[in-house]
Structure formats: structure tokens, C-alpha cells
């Protein structure tokens, strides 16, 4: 893979993520994540697969601290995310875009306002209050809406959109942050198969175009094989497979998901 043209080293440092011995227990003695260690280089789409309840969501939410890790280290942009708090945490969160299973749009706001929510980490409170976003941000938001195919929906309310359209807004909102890392938590699990493929295509193409490393949780193995550059298989809170899609064999799937009949 070719490196980015300008300041490849700097960008690589900014966009790589190292997770060291990450543990999470919601209740003491019942670990959801067991010593997860992971290194993600500066680009590519990484799919995390595994059965429900295996800690995929927890892992992704630990990265931007929507869930508090119990122990371990998360190095991003040269800082340990686990040690940050308050304004420092917010400053680093604005560099991590997130896409959600249920889209998590503010339903009563318009599409463009939802996209502009991605700038809230950058703009002062009074601008958010008065909706006085910078002209450059508004222009950028329109470009992103065009890019996700919703240019004509800018002034519609988010609750008038279909599921696929809402997820497109969610993607535009994540990109609006100009992120150095995108996290997507089951972005297609609430969508029909055709829309799922379209959404994955969109996420993959945006990630490739902007050279943003993207971590996607999914339980659809076919989608993972089709779009991911690297697949991580998780089972019972630990990583049991890590490699390119072609290396993922049925024996690995057995280890990840257990059982046998479903592979036929």
C-alpha cells in the first residue's frame, strides 16, 4: 500500500491506534474484555466479527471512552486515552468519528444540523446555541451530504428519513469531525441486506478516499470478507483471529462462533 504523500510519518503517528492489555468488567469478576491487545496502522478498514455479547461493542466504546475501561492502555495520537479526562478527553474525541447501529441522530433537528453536530467538539457553546456555525463548516457539511447522496435533504427533519438515509447522515456526521479514526458499531445491523451493502460501500470508499483507519463491528461475515482489509475475530472477550480476509477459514469461524451446523 502506498503511503500518503505529505508528511507520511506524522500522519501515520496521528492515525495509528495501539491497545494494550485492555480489560473491562461491568461487574467485578465478570470480565467482558480480557487483555485485548491490538495495533492498528494508519489506514484500512478493520472488521471486528464475533457473536453478540462477545465484547465487540464494549471494545469500540472503550476506545473513545463512552465506556470506561477497567484497566489497560489505549494509545492514540501519542496520548493514553485511558488517562485523559475532561477537556483533554473531548479534544481527542473530536478526532474519532463514530457511527452507530441505531444512527443516534437527534430526530427533531434537521439533517444538516445533525451533520453539524460533528463539529461540536470544535465550536464554542454559544455558536452551537445560536446555530451560528462557520460558513466553512456549513459548506463542508453540504459537501458531505452530497457525498453521501443526501444533498437535497439538508433541511428535512431527521425523523422523516428512512433507515438507510439516517445512517448516511450518521456517516456524514462522523466525517464532519475530520477524524483520524472512525469507529462504527454494527452500522448495518438495523438495515436490510441491500442497504447494508450500500452503507458498507460508502463507509469503505470514504475511509479509503480520506485514508482514515476505520474499525467496524459487524456480525455479518460475508460483508466483512467483502469490505475489510483486515479481520479481527473475537470470542468471549478475547481476540482469537487477526489477519487478512483470505486467511479467514471455516476453522477460524468455528472457533469464533462455536457450533457447526450454521456453516453448511
Amino acid at each position: 500500500m502506498a503511503t500518503a504523500t505529505q508528511a507520511p510519518d506524522a500522519r501515520k503517528r496521528e492515525r495509528s491506534l495501539i491497545i494494550n492489555k485492555l480489560c473491562k468488567e461491568y461487574r467485578a469478576g465478570q470480565p467482558v474484555l480480557r487483555d485485548v491487545s491490538l495495533e492498528i496502522e494508519s489506514r484500512g478498514l478493520i472488521a471486528i466479527i464475533g457473536p453478540s455479547g462477545t465484547g465487540k461493542s464494549t471494545l469500540i466504546r472503550c476506545i473513545n471512552r463512552l465506556v470506561e475501561p477497567t484497566s489497560g492502555e489505549i494509545l492514540f495520537r501519542g496520548r493514553d486515552m485511558v488517562a485523559l479526562s475532561g477537556p483533554e478527553l473531548r479534544t481527542i474525541r473530536r478526532h474519532i468519528g463514530m457511527i452507530f447501529q441505531e444512527y443516534n441522530l437527534v430526530e427533531r433537528l434537521s439533517v444538516i444540523e445533525n451533520v453539524l453536530c460533528g463539529r461540536l467538539g470544535y465550536v464554542p457553546v454559544w455558536r452551537a446555541w445560536l446555530r451560528k456555525f462557520r460558513a466553512a463548516d456549513i459548506e463542508h457539511a453540504f459537501q458531505l451530504l452530497d457525498a453521501v447522496g443526501l444533498g437535497d435533504f439538508a433541511n428535512q427533519r431527521a425523523d422523516q428519513l428512512s433507515g438507510g438515509q439516517r445512517q448516511r447522515v450518521g456517516i456524514a456526521r462522523a466525517l464532519m469531525q475530520e477524524p483520524d479514526l472512525v469507529l462504527a458499531d454494527e452500522p448495518t445491523s438495523s438495515l436490510d441486506p441491500k442497504t447494508s451493502v450500500e452503507i458498507m460501500e460508502l463507509i469503505a470508499s470514504r475511509a479509503a478516499e480520506r485514508k482514515i483507519p476505520t474499525i467496524v463491528n459487524m456480525h455479518n461475515v460475508d460483508l466483512a470478507r467483502r469490505f475489510a482489509d483486515r479481520i479481527i475475530g473475537m470470542s468471549k472477550g478475547a481476540i482469537v483471529f487477526d489477519g487478512p480476509p483470505l486467511a479467514l477459514k471455516d476453522s477460524h469461524l468455528l472457533e469464533i462462533y462455536g457450533g457447526e451446523g450454521w456453516l453448511e
Partner: peptide, 15 residues
């Protein structure tokens, strides 16, 4: 849910 998204974008509490 929307709050989770806005928080994830690094918004300060008042935003």
C-alpha cells in the same frame, strides 16, 4: 442515543 453521538464527537457538556 443522540447524546451518546454528540458526546462521542467531543462536544462540551453545554453543547
Amino acid at each position: 442515543k443522540p447524546l451518546e453521538a454528540v458526546r462521542a464527537a467531543g462536544a462540551p457538556f453545554l453543547s
